[in-house]
Amino acid sequence: MIKKNPRRFFLAGGMAAVLSGCASKFRSYSGPEVTRIRLYKSDRLLVLDGSQGVLSTYPVGLGFSPTGHKQFEGDGRTPEGTYTIDRRNPNSLFHLSIGISYPNEADIAFAKAQGQSPGGDIFIHGGPRWGIDPLNKRDWTAGCISVTDRQVEEVYAMVRDGTPIEIYA
């Protein structure tokens, strides 16, 4: 007869649970609804608000030229103003990504008046696959908002399409 070791069984079960939790980048969230997102560019801080107050905050990286409102394609700036979350990309080159509705009508009109493109494809996303550590080199994107992979998993689970995002200088 083989004697079973309950401690070993418990440890093996615990390890299996931990490893299965690491297997997916898609998390579930059953907490309060995120009603608004605020980004404070100068503080490099992303804030998720619910109806009762702040739900979560994250340090962020921005575009490689972080000062000022995005005006043209390739300027390396992160937009400022009020937008909405309008799409998500589970197959992003940046782990996961959540789209922001830039450019709006005013952004398009301004760029057109200057004979330029306003650009687009502004996202909240995780880190790249080519070795930049988003916490050690903060402002490396082309205008997007970067967080760590683990943080974007949380944001991706918490935020729904249609959520407003206010981006402040």
Rank of each mutant, 00 (worst) to 15 (best):
I167F: 13
Y29C: 05
E153S: 07
S97L: 10
S97H: 10
R38W: 07
D43I: 02
F64V: 01
A111D: 02
N89T: 07
M158S: 02
D149F: 09
I145S: 05
F26Y: 04
F10N: 13
F94I: 09
R38A: 09
R27E: 11
I124Y: 02
G99E: 03
I145V: 15
A109D: 15
P66L: 06
A23H: 13
F9P: 00
P79V: 05
E154K: 05
G63D: 10
D133G: 09
V147C: 07
G21D: 12
P164C: 06
W130P: 09
T78Y: 14
S28P: 04
M15A: 14
N89E: 10
T82V: 15
K137L: 02
G31Y: 09
P164E: 14
P128L: 01
G120R: 01
E33G: 04
E166L: 04
G127R: 14
G143I: 04
D121K: 03
R129H: 14
I145E: 05
K70N: 06
G99H: 05
S92W: 12
P118C: 00
S20H: 04
T82A: 14
L45F: 05
L39V: 15
E105R: 12
E154F: 01
M158Q: 12
I98R: 00
M158T: 02
E80L: 06
A111M: 07
R88D: 07
S92V: 10
S24F: 03
G81A: 13
S51A: 14
A109R: 11
I132M: 12
R88L: 04
A106T: 13
K137F: 01
A23R: 10
G120W: 11
K25C: 02
F26I: 05
G162Y: 11
F123H: 09
P32R: 09
A12E: 12
A106R: 12
G21Q: 10
D49I: 00
R87L: 09
T67R: 13
P103D: 00
L45Q: 11
P128G: 10
G143Y: 06
R87Y: 10
A111C: 06
L11G: 03
Y29T: 08
C22D: 00
K112A: 15
Y83A: 01
S56H: 13
R8T: 11
Y102T: 04
K112N: 15
S146M: 01
F9T: 07
L48E: 07
F10H: 14
G99A: 10
Q116I: 03
E105H: 01
R129C: 05
K41M: 01
I98M: 15
L93R: 15
E80W: 09
F123P: 03
F123Y: 15
V18A: 09
C22K: 00
